[in-house]
């Protein structure tokens, strides 16, 4: 592996979703390279395929990669199971984290850490680490005895995703609309968690969002406009400001015309 391989490199990615009427193409040739140390924001209107991108990178069985490639530090992810992708260093903070009744947050975190690390973390230091991570996200230590995502508020669910991000510390993190449904305080707490993770300097972040709001707290290196299953425009921070001003309309029209 050479250093040029480093990164989450998406090349001409085509993805279909299974529907009752047969497979339906959603992603129509996505090119994107997230290098270590970079934060990329993907912005786009509803239905543009942003979440499909997130899920298909993580290996959700509903989505099929029909063309192109996704490589993580040179390792091809297409065809790998979700757990193999996680072990390769990929993490997806979900828009709708799933309830797992009867499984405590503590057990869940420890099981995940063990699965990813190959060995159970030492109990004493792990409990401290978990409590510290919960504290940083302003969740009290009792939180760890609750069932995963069961009865959590929207904000608690998202903060719990970021607790996992910090504790599992993957090489590349995809955040799928982590900002949606958060009030201003929770948004700041979550954004601080992402910034702490990114501040390590060698991690890559793909931040998928509908609104520019979270970009007040997280400074992206690159902004991509995502329309109709592909990237329609790329730029820096200023692109987000233009979107704030003008919306997605011009990109949607251009995509429809093509």
């Amino acid at each position: 592996m050479t250093t040029t391989d480093s990164g989450l490199v998406i090349t001409d990615l085509h993805v279909s979703v299974e529907t009752e009427a047969g497979p339906k193409p959603i992603l129509k040739g996505v090119d994107l390279a997230i290098r270590p140390g970079q934060i990329h924001a993907i912005m786009g209107p509803n239905g543009s395929g942003k979440s499909t991108l997130a899920y298909s990178l993580a290996g959700h069985p509903k989505y099929t990669i029909t063309g192109g490639s996704v490589a993580l530090d040179g390792l091809e992810l297409a065809g790998l199971s979700p757990d193999a992708r996680a072990k390769a260093g990929l993490f997806l903070a979900m828009q709708y984290p799933v309830e797992v009744p009867g499984v405590s947050v503590a057990n869940f975190l420890r099981t995940a850490k063990t699965a990813l690390g190959g060995a159970a973390p030492s109990l004493r230091s792990w409990v401290k680490e978990v409590d510290a991570a919960l504290g940083r996200l302003q969740l009290d230590s009792e939180f760890s005895s609750r069932s995963v995502n069961e009865g959590f508020s929207g904000g608690e669910k998202k903060r719990h995703e970021i607790v996992q991000l910090e504790l599992l510390n993957p090489k590349y993190a995809i955040l799928d609309e982590t900002d949606s449904g958060l009030d201003i305080d929770a948004l700041r707490i979550v954004a601080e968690g992402v910034n702490r993770y990114a501040a390590q300097g060698d991690r890559g972040v793909l931040l998928i969002t509908h609104y520019t709001r979270i970009l007040r707290y997280i400074e992206p290196d690159f902004v991509h406009v995502f329309v109709d299953g592909r990237i329609a425009e790329e730029g820096g921070r200023e692109l987000a400001d233009q979107l704030e001003e003008n919306g997605y309309e011009k990109y949607v029209k251009a995509a429809a015309a093509s």
Partner: peptide, 21 residues
């Protein structure tokens, strides 16, 4: 999928779900 995306293989994910149930 949620559990597997956290590194648990299929058997471990199923086991955790049944145990929790």
């Amino acid at each position: 999928f949620y559990l597997r995306s956290r590194g648990l293989d299929e058997a471990a994910a199923r086991r955790l779900v049944v145990r929790g149930f």
